[in-house]
């Protein structure tokens, strides 16, 4: 257990920046490219101050050319650099998909193991900012459908630091999904420069025994709020956080379902074709199937583009009360 004295309080945004800064200081091959990441400091302020410390050679402000940003990163990674690149919004990955999916993800396999593509693609995702349908999506399911990519998503400042550092040190293309509503979230972050969260892990965020909830991103925080509320009624919810969405570690989820017999899987992404379906399928394929005592509940975004209006926007994605009602249903309390 880490002592509080080894930690400092900071935001999720600052924790990502700290992880990047530490890695850039210790490895000169790490460069960072994206739109308005220099003087402007990035659309969400993640790269603020990096230009001053690392200079124009390593902090590269690009034209608005997402295909070139991702493709250049792939080409640079294949030839010895370790680029981090930023899509200003995850939605814009549509414009970089060829470079990511057909080039970066497949190059190693296509060439029989000849190359490696050590790059990080930062993707600010999710709704809640009132930016409407082209700036609010959670498109992780697309990325989790592409062997060769790794997909990670932190839910706390500490996780953000540990995972961004792991992503930068990884020798594969890693998609690093940041939920925009978490940027101002504050938490304790280890100051240790070797604090790394291993990619490929699902963690227990909150132990319990009655119902298993699997959630990530801001949806995880809503699940935790629900769990705190339910605890007052004596219901102990166990919450699992798949920090790596792909390739996902299932065993902790399976073990939890064996213990609780009840499962809720939740995300902001559109429910149809979402990652929740995959997680559920793997649970019912596993030994946990025999332990289920109620139908599984999937919470996900409605099958609509994210609307602008604040109330409509909030109603599009799962909220705290959806978890509370879900747990009640599973426990036959309604």
């Amino acid at each position: 257990m880490m002592k509080t004295s080894d930690m400092i309080k900071m935001t999720y945004r600052d924790a990502i920046r700290l992880g990047i800064t530490e890695e850039m200081r210790q490895d000169k091959d790490v460069i960072f490219l994206g739109e308005d990441i220099g003087t402007y400091g990035g659309a969400f302020g993640v790269s603020k101050g990096l230009l001053e410390e690392f200079g124009e050679e390593r902090i590269l402000d690009t034209p608005i050319s997402e295909g070139a940003i991702v493709g250049t990163a792939v080409g640079a990674a294949t030839t010895g650099l370790r680029p981090i690149c930023e899509m200003m919004f995850m939605d814009f990955i549509t414009l970089g998909m060829d470079a990511l999916v057909n080039q970066g993800a497949k190059m190693r396999y296509l060439f029989g193991g000849q190359s490696q593509v050590p790059m990080v693609l930062r993707l600010p995702a999710g709704s809640g900012t009132g930016a409407a349908a082209q700036h609010s999506q959670s498109l992780e399911a697309w990325l989790c459908h592409v062997p060769g990519l790794k997909v990670v998503t932190p839910s706390s400042p500490a996780q953000a630091k540990g995972l961004i550092k792991a992503a930068i040190r990884d020798n594969n293309p890693v998609c690093f999904i940041e939920h925009k509503m978490l940027y101002d979230a504050v938490g304790l972050v280890p100051i240790d420069e070797d604090y790394i969260l291993e990619i490929g892990k699902t963690i227990v965020e909150r132990p319990g025994k009655d119902v298993t909830i699997v959630a990530y991103g801001t949806t995880l925080l809503k699940a935790i709020e629900a769990a705190e509320f339910l605890e007052e009624e004596g219901i102990k919810v166990e919450i699992l956080n798949p920090l790596t969405l792909y390739p996902i570690e299932m065993q902790p989820i399976i073990d939890s379902v064996i213990k609780t017999g009840c499962l809720i899987v939740a995300h902001e992404a559109v429910k149809t074709g979402g990652l929740g379906g995959e997680i559920v399928a793997r649970v019912v394929e596993s030994e946990a199937f025999d332990y289920l005592t109620a139908p599984i509940i999937r919470l996900g975004g409605l099958d609509v583009p994210i609307p602008f209006n604040q109330e409509l926007e909030a109603a599009t994605v799962p909220q705290r009360n959806d978890f509370v009602h879900g747990v009640y249903r599973l426990l036959n309390r309604i």
């Binding site: 493709g71 250049t72 080409g75 640079a76 294949t78 060829d98 296509l110 000849q114």
Partner: peptide, 29 residues
């Protein structure tokens, strides 16, 4: 997709136009 990456051959590309920005990246290195 014939390639010899170690010796500087970054490979054939099945996506027409797929090699342009990879080349920019290799040139950036």
């Amino acid at each position: 997709h014939i390639a010899d990456v170690e010796n500087g051959n970054l490979g054939g590309n099945g996506i027409v136009g797929g090699g342009f920005n990879l080349s920019c990246g290799a040139a950036l290195t």
